[in-house]
Simulated scan of single mutants.
Amino acid sequence: MGLEDASPLKSGVRIRKGRFALLLAAWRVGVSRKSARVVLAFPGSGRYPLESGMVADIARRAAVLGAYLSETSDIDAWIYTSRAHRLPSLRQPDAAQWIEDWAVLPKKSLFTQDAVQGNPLARHARQYGVDSPGEDVAAAVGEIARSIPRDGAPTLVLFYLWAAHSRGALADRLREEADGNVFWLFVGNSPGNDVQELLERLRIEATDIKNVHHYKGWEELDDTPDYLFYRGVLKPFSRWLRRGGGEW
């Protein structure tokens, strides 16, 4: 998916098409409407996922998920760097414009005099630490966990990874959240991603932690067809729900 596909018109078309894929996937795995809140988190330390449209694509899919799963259709959205920063809520009716505002970055201008002010994300780039090294996945998990109401309602966190490094005690943080009402669904299959290795070890060595899953998709996540993506995300989430996930 290129940056041109993140335009409101093209994003809107893809959102409409994605609904049918989600409905089929949800029916196949047995997840009902209005059964969970949805949270989206994506990285901001590197520009490539934002410039290339990769984050735009995951935001589009999250908007479709939220419209189906959430009672209000609102999605809490976060961008994480050295810490997590909360963004305006993402809603499917406004998703195309939201994506253009908050899920893409224009490429840097070659010449300073050609630089443009850019969208809201570009204007907040310094405040959020965008394109600065040192993202902290463990800190982001902790910040997001503290923001989620402990009301017993199940929550699906769609946590996008790109070349993520495990700074801090991520495994310890996920163990602390193991009994919560949150299902941590990490998505992404990028090179140089040692968080993926940690999640694989967690799957093998910490079988008592049931509310964490890593979905890789195809080699390029944005090339994964919508139906396969939604089925891959919803299937582990539905298993967790059937085991009593979200019940306090």
Rank of each mutant, 00 (worst) to 15 (best):
A153Q: 15
D101W: 09
D151R: 06
G46D: 09
E247I: 08
S32N: 13
E177Y: 10
L228Q: 14
E200R: 14
V212Q: 01
A169S: 14
F159R: 02
R37I: 14
G192L: 11
P88C: 08
G244S: 07
A178F: 02
R37H: 08
L40D: 12
A26Q: 05
G53R: 06
A84R: 02
G217E: 00
E219Y: 04
A77W: 03
A67H: 13
A59S: 11
E220K: 05
R175E: 15
Y230A: 04
T81G: 11
A63Q: 12
A77I: 11
S132F: 02
A21F: 05
V137F: 01
D222V: 13
V104Y: 06
S89A: 11
L105F: 04
I148Q: 05
L174S: 06
F42D: 05
S35N: 10
V157L: 04
A95I: 06
L241R: 15
T81W: 04
L22E: 02
L69Y: 15
A25P: 06
R14I: 03
S35L: 05
F186M: 08
A125D: 00
G66N: 07
E205C: 10
Q127C: 06
Q113H: 12
W184N: 11
Q92Y: 14
S82Q: 13
A169N: 15
H213F: 10
Y215N: 00
P43N: 10
G142D: 04
D179A: 15
S166W: 11
R61C: 00
E205N: 14
D151N: 12
V104H: 09
A95W: 02
E71D: 12
K235I: 10
P8D: 03
L156M: 10
G134A: 07
I15H: 03
A115V: 02
R19L: 06
D194N: 14
S190M: 07
R28D: 08
T112Y: 09
